[in-house]
């Protein structure tokens, strides 16, 4: 098997993803885990209600221990976000923020959930009139215009680079940029205008977006604002594979008891499948998803 191919790829390094890695790798399949520990909502939390841990433990410590455990079962960790997914010929193709491509027989979605909205004045009012949450969907509407991308992580950085192919001028508002060195370098060598010392305070416009007011008082005259907070999540990475979302909120991925989505070979575990936001639920689902994905991958590898 080549270096960039695996049986089970896990997107997300929270408790669901780690437990899935432990159980999948335990079944002797090749497992790669993508993502960063800081993206997990457990990273900054303290846990007091997780069975068998009487003392309050830090989430960060749990995540580090889980990684060591998964590695002891030969899981491989790639500390990059996934920015693109595709399925072709019974395999999934995943592209990382550095532009590296990996193939997998089965994929477990365990990216959790993250805030997608900026919560600033003008954002809601101008949605669809210059405010967008999806560079991949809407870049084409901004040909020859000036746009701002807002966000500190891979989705925003990759989005800004994508927009260079469409827009006239691209700003990236990112005071706390956390991306790989390679992506950083690509940005620095591009025409993206990087704003590091301010955040967005307000989005201004009448019937359409006209400008962005920054926290340092500067005003960017733009026709569009792309809000791309965090890493790409369920809607960005799973929807294009044809995954069914929960009917009630359209935010979570539907799974059955085996943690299978409606797409063969695609599983989901943890917060991404819906409430409750508990480590116990995430590891339970991760365990099942890991085992089932490994079984699926073995079956498909034989056929």
């Amino acid at each position: 098997m080549p270096q960039d191919a695996c049986d089970v790829a896990i997107i997300g390094r929270g408790p669901g993803g780690l437990q899935a890695a432990i159980h999948a790798a335990g079944k002797k399949v090749k497992v790669i885990v993508f993502g960063r520990p800081e993206r997990s909502s457990l990273y900054k939390a303290h846990v007091a209600n997780f069975c068998c841990f009487e003392e309050i433990v830090s989430g960060k410590q749990l995540l580090e221990a889980g990684k060591r455990q998964a590695e002891s079962f030969d899981s491989v960790f790639v500390e990059q976000d996934i920015i693109e997914t595709k399925s072709e010929n019974n395999r999934f193709r995943l592209v990382t923020e550095n532009g590296e491509t990996f193939s997998a027989i089965a994929v477990i979605l365990a990216m959790g959930i993250a805030r997608k909205k900026l919560r600033v004045k003008g954002e809601k009012e101008l949605l669809g009139r210059g405010v967008s949450y999806c560079v991949d969907c809407d870049a084409n509407f901004y040909r020859g215009m000036d746009v701002a991308v807002v966000g500190n992580e891979s989705a925003a950085a990759a989005g800004a680079l994508t927009l260079l192919g469409y827009a006239k001028k691209v700003y990236l508002v990112c005071p706390k940029l956390t991306i790989t060195d390679l992506l950083h370098e690509q940005l620095n060598h591009s025409d993206v205008k990087i704003i590091r010392d301010a955040w967005v305070k307000e989005i201004r416009g009448g019937t359409e977006v006209e400008a962005v007011l920054l926290t340092d008082g500067d005003v960017l005259k733009v026709n569009g604002v792309f809000v791309e907070l965090g890493a790409k999540g369920a809607m960005e990475l799973a929807a294009n594979l044809g995954v069914v979302f929960d009917a009630e909120t359209f935010s979570f991925i539907e799974t059955n008891k085996k943690q299978e989505t409606n797409i063969p070979g695609l599983y989901a575990a943890g917060d991404i499948t819906g409430q409750p936001w508990q480590i116990a639920k995430a590891v339970g689902e991760g365990c099942v998803a890991g085992m089932e994905a490994a079984k699926y991958a073995k079956r498909l590898a034989r056929s």
């Binding site: 999806c134 991949d136 969907c137 084409n140 809607m235 929807a239 294009n240 044809g242 069914v244």
Partner: peptide, 10 residues
């Protein structure tokens, strides 16, 4: 909609 748009598919 457009074919490349994930939320459109959803």
């Amino acid at each position: 909609w457009a074919p490349w748009c994930g939320p459109c598919k959803a």
